[in-house]
């Protein structure tokens, strides 16, 4: 008999250094409590984190990689959003 499927969860961990929660991988668990425990055992065996988020994978809405050209075009064409676009006289020093 085929083994029945167990839901998939995405795991996010906030490390000690004060950074935001970061995606570290995924796991299978039947509910949120078990997902948290499994995340601790699988992804923090060496003190990698201070906080864990688990999110049902099915709850994530992702952008389509095939459409990335159109999706990110607005940012590509606006070089004036970067500080190096502007010229400041050398005498002014670091700004």
């Amino acid at each position: 008999m085929a083994t029945p499927n167990t839901p998939l969860w995405e795991v996010f961990i906030r490390s000690r250094n004060g950074l935001a929660h970061k995606h570290v991988g995924s796991l299978h668990a039947s509910d949120a409590t078990m997902a948290l425990q499994a995340a601790r055992d699988i992804y923090t065996r060496r003190g990698e984190g201070l906080s864990i988020w688990v999110v049902p994978s099915s709850a994530i809405t992702a952008s389509d990689p095939a459409e990335k050209g159109m999706m990110f075009e607005p940012a590509e064409s606006k070089i004036y959003r970067h500080p190096t676009f502007y010229e400041v006289p050398e005498e002014v020093g670091h700004m």
Binding site: T3, P4, T6, A29, S30, D31, M34
Partner: peptide
């Protein structure tokens, strides 16, 4: 164990 976990999740 897998069955118990699945049925508990379903009950909740």
């Amino acid at each position: 164990v897998r069955e118990a976990a699945a049925s508990y999740a379903a009950k909740r």
